[in-house]
Design a protein around this nucleic acid. Structure first.
Lengths: 361, 361
DNA sequence: CTTGTTACCGATACCGGTATCGATAACACA
DNA sequence: TGTGTTATCGATACCGGTATCGGTAACAAG
């Protein structure tokens, strides 16, 4: 299948003549810049590859002149370095594996952006995978990730099935579970309590005089955090002898369009609601649109979750809890960075955020 | 700094006793599941590691019984495999490097999602990096990526500076430039002509009777594709002896809030516009909100670009060009997959999409 | 019984780096 | 002059896999 390889064994003599001698495929330009090896750079600089390795990494025991020669050769050959060999040899990677459920909700990209900035300057790379809210797929993705021997792994949520947890533990690297706090973390945990977020939102809305609540969400079996928010909300409703008068659950992932559609439906069925709690801001924005179309913006308040930039720009006000998504990513990244220097992760460390509720008063 | 390694040399005898014997750190559970090597699996199965390698990869010359023994040992030890060693040894990776400018605009996450699904089942992994619309940063990110010897690289746009292009070429892997088509591709090219997109939008709006145009965008020096759309739009305006009556350019990245703010400003300065072209849908949605607040939704049409789901759900109609973002990602991924089997990328292959204009008629 | 074939498996040499130890030369010091 | 010391560098053995080639046993054919 794969054609012969290793048929060119560069002899030392050959190398001594300079690696520029015989390059010239379709790709290689005449600068001779191509993926070269330490060995080639060494030959060009007239030293051993060990010395090149040292020079490039800034090791102390290399004379200034040698270092210069090596640097020049590196430049000329366009040497890039090989993380595969480096990582295999040194037994440590600069990889951070990240698994998120989805990319179509802006929340996770923002977390990734946070991770990216949090990793900046550390020389570490994020490798990401999507689970599509599917635990089986998540397990497979995690397995693939682990085969790269990342130095840390960031996963979304606390509700991984047992075999996934076992696999994670067996990797013997820091495991950073993000977003959710309601559950038992394996190792590090960065996020917020969605149960509490739901509770607080309910309390705030009730305090603001809302009495007749509806709920709109999408597939809660998959978005467990939305389900936790709803459960928290309902707990507080119950405390006040209240309940959701009506609710609608979609069967696709949350979106503005879905929120709008379900809101129209719910408003028709229950015209006397004075507040609707949504599974998140996308849905709530859709709700706001529906409210505008139905001219119900004055007597009914839509409440979501996340604090999207979009929600703040809306012509009508909606309530929401601002989740520190970027921040969660950055903190997770910092924890991952730590993994490069400390061998002993302080087991069970938790970073808890409290979302700020806005748009009510 | 890093403490001693390689101090444990498992003797063959030691291994023969079973790798479960001496595990028991804080992390290892009593199942003995931990990162083990082919050698260990081989010892447990009583064969050579070469045989294990063959068995695990489904090579033909392994007897069924041996395969079973190996599989059992693999299972028991929770062997995961080491992509680092695999890739280094076999001289090919299953990595696809992806560089996008930003994560805060939903467009790029959607491209990534497309790439992810396009890669599904191929055993390939996407490694992504952010350039923040900064060419220097882009170059550094690309260099980091290349050091992992990916089997393909996907970069955004066609306007990389010369040194970046040189670096890309020297990697001798398929280079897939996405999103933009206006320029000279290095190798593969998947996207759409933003110049034409701007032209077509202008033509459609003029055909629909719009006459008094304004423009609202953000930092166009960074978002080159938005600049190309604007240029295309202006070309057609000129053909019709028209011009932008007024325009506003923000100095931050595009967002709904920014679009709303600038629209309010522009509407104050130029109250008699009947159409505003925006750098993208986020801005246009903000414009729509401003229009609603100013009660100008009947006499002025906002036009954006992307065809976001959000735009379709809006209570007022806005015009937009639907860009096939997911599709672009999927096609790019397919091209990247191809790279694993064919050594000779068909140089210069271009996949062109034509965005559909909606929301005008 | 000798000789091919075939099926199966192991030994060995890599892949491109790093860690470790040892060697050499220059220089200081007694 | 003999002996440490220090600075600088190379040789060698890995890391954990895969590619390649060769070897052995079983069985068929001559």
């Amino acid at each position: 299948m794969y054609v012969k390889r290793r048929q060119f064994h560069f002899s030392r003599n050959r190398l001594m003549t300079g690696a520029r001698a015989d390059v010239g495929t379709e790709w290689g330009d005449r600068l001779g810049i191509r993926k070269s090896t330490l060995e080639e750079v060494a030959a060009a600089a007239g030293v051993s590859k060990m010395t090149v390795s040292r020079a490039l990494r800034g090791a102390p025991d290399v004379s200034p002149e040698t270092r210069q020669r090596v640097l020049k050769a590196t430049e000329q050959l366009g040497y890039v370095g090989n993380q595969l060999a480096l990582s295999l040899s040194s037994q440590r990677t600069n990889l951070v594996a990240v698994v998120v459920p989805s990319m179509s909700n802006i929340v996770f990209p923002e977390v990734l952006a946070g991770i990216s900035t949090g990793l900046e300057g550390s020389g570490m790379q994020a490798v990401f995978g999507l689970s599509d809210y599917d635990t089986r797929k998540e397990r497979d993705v995690i397995r693939d990730m682990l085969s790269w021997r990342p130095s840390a792994i960031i996963v979304t949520g606390l509700d991984q099935p047992e075999d996934t947890v076992k696999m994670l533990k067996s990797a013997e690297i820091p495991i950073i579970q993000i977003m959710d706090l309601d559950g038992t973390p394996i190792d590090f945990n960065v996020g917020l309590s969605h149960g509490k977020a739901g509770e607080e939102m309910a309390r705030a809305l009730i305090a603001a005089g809302r009495k007749r609540f509806g709920y709109i969400g999408s597939v809660l079996e998959r978005d467990l955090r939305a389900a936790k928010r709803k459960a928290g909300f309902e707990r507080v409703l119950l405390e006040h002898r209240l309940t959701f008068i009506g609710q609608r659950l979609g069967d696709t992932l949350s979106s503005v369009g879905l929120g709008k559609y379900l809101t129209h439906e719910l408003l028709r069925a229950e015209p006397n609601l004075d507040c609707i709690y949504y599974s998140n801001d996308d849905m709530a924005v859709g709700g706001a649109f529906a409210g505008m179309e139905a001219s119900r913006t004055d007597d009914i308040l839509m409440a979501g979750f996340n604090g999207l930039e979009l929600a703040a720009a809306l012509p009508v006000r909606i309530a929401t809890s601002k989740s520190p998504r970027r921040m969660i990513g950055e903190v997770a990244a910092r924890l991952a960075r730590g993994s490069m220097v400390t061998d002993a992760p302080s087991n069970g460390k938790i970073t808890a955020f409290v979302p700020e509720i806005i748009g009510i008063a």
